[in-house]
Amino acid sequence: MKPAPFDYVRAKSLGEALAALGDDAMPLAGGQSLLPLLGLRMASARLLVDIGHLDELRQSSATDATVTLGAAVTHAEIEDGRVPDPGHGLMRSIARKLAYRAVRNQGTIGGSVAMADPAADWPACLVALGATARIAGPDGERRVAVTDLIEDIYTTSLVPGEIIVSFDIPRLHAAAKTGTAKVMRKTGAFAMSFVVAVLHDGDQADRIVLAGAGRRAERLAETSDAVAAGMDEAALRAAVAADLAGLMDAPDDYAVRLHTAVVLRALAEARRS
C-alpha cells in the first residue's frame, strides 16, 4: 500500500503554489484524505504542491458579521477554539467528533471540502452556515458558495490549478439555535447520516442540512420549510421523505428511517440549545 511515485514541492507563497500547480499536480495540505487514496493507488499525481503551511491559508479573522477561516486551518484548531467559531460552538462540537484526534491535528477544513466526500462533516456544516469559499487560481480569485462549489460525489467546481484559500462564514445570529446528529458504524468512522440544523438565525431561513444520503451535503428544502412552519412530527417525516426522494435514487426504507431519525435528533438538539 505505497503510492506511485510523485514529486513534491513545498510552496513558499500562494503565488508560487499557483505557479507550480500545472498539469497533473495536486495541492496537498494535511494529506489525511489524499495520502490514503494515493497509497491505495486510487489516485495519482505527478506533483504534490504542499500548501499546508502557507500564511494565506493559515490565517483566520473575524468581523462582527463574518468569520474567515483559512483553508489550512486544522480540525483540531477548530476543536480547541484556536480560531473563531461563527456558529457559537457549532463548529467546535462538530470538530470534536470528526475522525480521530491524530487525524484532526493534520487534516484541514479546506482539504475536507475539496475532497467532497458525500458523508463528510465540514461540507454539511459550511452549507448550513452559508459559507463562501475564496478560491485562488491562475486567472485570479473567485468566490463561490460552498453549496455550489461541491457539485457531486467527490466532485467540486475546482479546476486544476485552483486552490481554496479560505472560507467566509457568516456569524450566526446570537439567538440562533443549532443542533447536530450523526450516526456512525463506530466512533470516528464516516457518517452513515449526519445532520446540521440551524434555526432562528435572524431573518435567515432555517437550514436542515444532510450528509451521507445523497451525492453531496444538501439543505433539505421541504424539511427546512416544514420546521420553519412549525409543522408536527408526522408532517416533518413526510417532508424528510420527500426531500430524500429528491436526493437519492430510490431511497430504501432503511435510508428513510435512518435519515429521518437523525434529522429529528438534530432538531431536538437545536431546540434544546
Binding site: V183, R185, M192, D253, Y254, R257, L258
Partner: peptide
C-alpha cells in the same frame, strides 16, 4: 448492523 436491526424491527 444498524441496517439489519432496523430492518428486522420494521
Amino acid at each position: 448492523t444498524p441496517r439489519r436491526v432496523s430492518d428486522a424491527v420494521a
